[in-house]
């Protein structure tokens, strides 16, 4: 890893100021950033740790929304979101391993937008709002393809607002070495219809499976998906699975999620 200056501000304002410097990058849990820096794929001049900012931490209920601070670790979401949004808590409890869940954060995961990460599926399927130091961004606009988001240079996610669904579930086919999703499906039923988001499968990152949403909005059951198949076009092909295999998993994992929804 190339060396860098390390700063750890205690407020969002100080973090934003520190990030205005040349080649400065935010560091949250570091579960992806630090390994990529070790490989010298990334070499910031300054790392601005966000883990010392108490205002970015915690899970709280606000009416029909669950608001999660961006620097809240997965293990805390798994515990503190369980009563209000169990499917989201279960997703958080399946990320990585216990040590990764103690460090990795929801804001870091969303800002990185790894095409195989779990949280983007929950955010997109829930129609979540990503709140930053400057504005609020709807999940649809936030995710802009593999590792790409609507965030500007130096913009920090401060919290994520999840509308709480009537029922929901996440079904993940884990890649056993990385524990990322080879393909994962998050389904959520709301009063105005069902939403389905797929991670791990597409070269364009997380996406909504609109045909399944239409079918599930009129009949929220696995049977409603009979005959529906996702296209292998633009699916990821690598040593773990072909595009056709992933396209097949999209259907399988969506059915499992619908069956498990609660």
């Amino acid at each position: 890893m190339y060396n860098f200056d390390f700063v750890k501000p205690a407020s969002v304002e100080d973090a934003v100021a520190a990030l205005s410097g040349d080649e400065a990058q935010p560091l949250s849990g570091g579960m992806t950033l630090l390994p990529s820096m070790k490989q010298r794929l990334n070499a910031p001049a300054t790392l601005v740790s966000l883990t010392g900012i108490d205002a970015l931490k915690g899970v709280c209920r606000d009416g029909d929304m669950l608001v999660i601070g961006a620097a809240t670790p997965h293990a805390v979401v798994a515990r503190d979101a369980a009563a209000d949004y169990p499917a989201l808590a279960e997703l958080a409890g399946q990320i990585g391993d216990p040590m990764v869940r103690n460090r990795g954060t929801i804001g870091g995961s969303l800002a990185n937008n790894d095409p195989s990460a779990c949280y983007p599926a929950a955010a997109l399927a829930s129609g979540a709002t990503i709140v930053t130091d400057k504005r609020e961004i709807a999940a649809e606009e936030f995710f802009q393809g593999m590792f790409a988001t609507a965030l500007d240079e130096g913009e920090i996610i401060t919290s994520v607002k999840f509308p709480i669904p009537q029922k929901a579930a996440y079904a993940k086919f884990a890649q056993p070495a990385s524990r990322f999703a080879l393909t994962g499906a998050f389904v959520a039923q709301y009063a105005d219809g069902a939403r389905v988001a797929i991670t791990g499968a597409s070269e364009n990152g997380v996406f909504r499976w609109s045909e399944a949403e239409t079918a599930l909005s009129s009949n929220f059951s696995a049977d409603a998906l009979n005959g529906l198949a996702a296209s292998a076009d633009q699916m990821i092909g690598d040593l773990h699975g072909t595009p056709e295999y992933r396209a097949h998993l999209v259907g399988v994992m969506t059915r499992r999620a619908v069956g498990a929804a609660h």
Binding site: F6, K8, L27, G30, M31, L34, P35, L47, S49, T51, A75, P98, M99, V100, N102, R103
Partner: peptide, 15 residues
């Protein structure tokens, strides 16, 4: 009190 992988935590971050 939390188990972490110390090869992926910066020393200065846990001052």
């Amino acid at each position: 009190g939390q188990a972490v992988k110390s090869c992926t935590v910066l020393a200065q971050d846990v001052e």
